[in-house]
């Protein structure tokens, strides 16, 4: 870099677009990953707190049998399917197959809606049976974690839907990539929530 400093004394004019340092990563991607890092810590904070509550709560296993593992299992499959379609959309966008990218994004958004719908059914059944958030440590942890996660799925669905409309006008593959990244992140969190509340 020092040698370059000497050489550049000669430069009198510079081509537009050449005036910046080369970075090699699209700025949208860096920005999104910084945001995502924050999101990981938010959900990580909830999950870590819940793990601590779980470890100090002796009746966890007696309560966790009341959750609906069947719906949660279906929801896991739904999220994983959404992840597959999201990554296929990402791949299509980077090979400039925009029609396919939109189609796959639509499928992902559909998965998001199915997930939120099933979650809603689950909640209403549980509340109907008297399992409300203030019941005990298990249920307050359950509602807080899955509720926050559900909001993230909803947000992810809206982002995916928004990007689906956005790439009709602007062909920015990074937009598809970022939307897919968000979906994968929400998916990974669910992979831990599923055993945490439903299986064990």
């Amino acid at each position: 870099m020092k040698a370059e400093g000497v050489r550049e004394v000669e430069i009198q004019e510079i081509q537009i677009g050449q005036e910046y340092e080369k970075v090699g990563i699209p700025f949208q991607k860096i920005g999104f990953w910084i945001f995502l890092a924050g999101e990981i810590v938010i959900l990580g904070g909830i999950v870590a707190s819940v793990i601590l509550f779980r470890l100090s709560y002796p009746h966890w296993f007696e309560e966790s049998v009341h959750t609906n593992a069947t719906i949660a299992f279906i929801n896991t499959l739904v999220l994983l399917t959404g992840s597959l379609t999201a990554v296929l959309s990402h791949q299509s966008a980077f090979s400039y197959n925009w029609g396919k990218a939109q189609l796959f994004l639509g499928l992902t958004a559909l998965c998001g809606l199915v997930f939120v719908g099933l979650k809603f059914v689950e909640y209403s059944r549980e509340i109907h049976h008297g399992f409300v958030p203030s019941r005990n440590v298990f249920w307050m942890s359950y509602y807080t974690t899955t509720g926050l996660h559900g909001l993230h799925v909803l947000a992810g669905t809206l982002i995916i839907f928004g990007v689906m409309l956005y790439i009709k006008k602007k062909k920015v593959p990074e937009a598809v990539e970022n939307a897919a990244l968000y979906w994968h992140f929400v998916d990974i969190v669910w992979l831990y929530i599923f055993p945490l509340f439903y299986l064990t």
């Binding site: 890092a37 924050g38 810590v41 909830i46 870590a48 958030p133 807080t144």
Partner: peptide, 25 residues
């Protein structure tokens, strides 16, 4: 800021639920 505030956001959510929904984090 990014990495330190995020756990507090989680904590603030729990506190809001404590105040409004009767949870007891």
């Amino acid at each position: 800021f990014l990495f330190s505030v995020a756990p507090l956001i989680a904590g603030a959510l729990m506190l809001l639920l404590d105040i409004n929904l009767g949870t007891h984090f």
